[in-house]
Each structure stands twice: as structure tokens, then as C-alpha cells.
Amino acid sequence: MCEALKELMKDELDAKWAEGFAEGRALGRALVILDLLKDLGEVSEELQRKIMEQSDTEVLNQWLRYAAWAETIQEFEQKIQ
């Protein structure tokens, strides 16, 4: 196999790995947010869906801080609007 093809395959594999890693980080953060909110009460399906569909880890990091400090689910929802 030529070196150029090997390098192309390696680059493709690296990109797929990075994409999967980012998706995993986002999913992990979303699940932690939901766990924190469930300690406050019942989380609506709509809110669960909104959290699970968010893929931006910076947004999820902010939401995680909101969830950690929120006293109610409604307070959290107001902050993420």
C-alpha cells in the first residue's frame, strides 16, 4: 500500500476517533445534567430531549454549572432559555 494512502487512512481514522470522542463527552455531560436535575424533581420529556440533543460541549459545560447550582428545575430552565 502506498504511503499516501496509508496517511489518508490514518487521517480518516483520527478524524472519526475525534468525532466519536467529542460525541461521548457531550453525551456524558448531558447525562450528568439530567442526573442533577432528577434530584430536584421530575424532568419533562421536552427538557430531557433539549439536553440530549445539545452537542456543543461549551454549552453543556455552562448548563452543568446551572444544574449544579439550581434549586429548582424551573430555575435551570430559565437560565438555559
Rank of each mutant, 00 (worst) to 15 (best):
Glu58Tyr: 11
Lys6Asn: 14
Gln74Thr: 07
Lys16Ser: 05
Lys38Ser: 11
Ala18Thr: 14
Gln78Tyr: 13
Glu71Gln: 06
Ala68Phe: 14
Arg49Thr: 07
Ile33Phe: 03
Gly24Cys: 14
Ala26Pro: 04
Ala70Tyr: 01
Glu45Arg: 06
Gly28Pro: 11
Arg25Ser: 11
Gln62Phe: 00
Gln48Glu: 14
Gly20Asp: 08
Leu37Ile: 06
Asp35Pro: 01
Glu77Asn: 04
Glu46Ala: 12
Phe76Arg: 00
Leu60His: 02
Val32Met: 15
Asp14Ala: 14
Leu37Phe: 10
Glu3Lys: 06
Gln78Trp: 12
Met52Arg: 11
Glu23Ser: 10
Glu53Pro: 03
Gly28His: 07
Gln81Tyr: 13
Lys79Glu: 06
Ile73Phe: 01
Leu37Tyr: 06
Gly28Ile: 08
Leu5Ile: 12
Asp35Glu: 09
Val32Trp: 04
Ala26Gly: 02
Ala22Asn: 12
Glu45Met: 03
Glu12His: 10
Lys16Phe: 05
Lys38Ala: 03
Leu27Ala: 07
Phe21Asn: 05
Glu3Ser: 12
Glu3Tyr: 09
Ser44Met: 03
Phe76Ala: 00
Gly24Leu: 11
Asp35Val: 00
Gln48His: 07
Lys16Glu: 15
Met1Glu: 05
Arg29Asp: 03
Leu27Tyr: 13
Val59Thr: 10
Lys79Leu: 15
Lys10Gln: 10
Gln74Ser: 10
Gly20Thr: 02
Arg25Glu: 15
Lys10Gly: 06
Gln62Ser: 09
Ala26Cys: 14
Glu46Pro: 03
Trp63Val: 00
Glu75Asn: 04
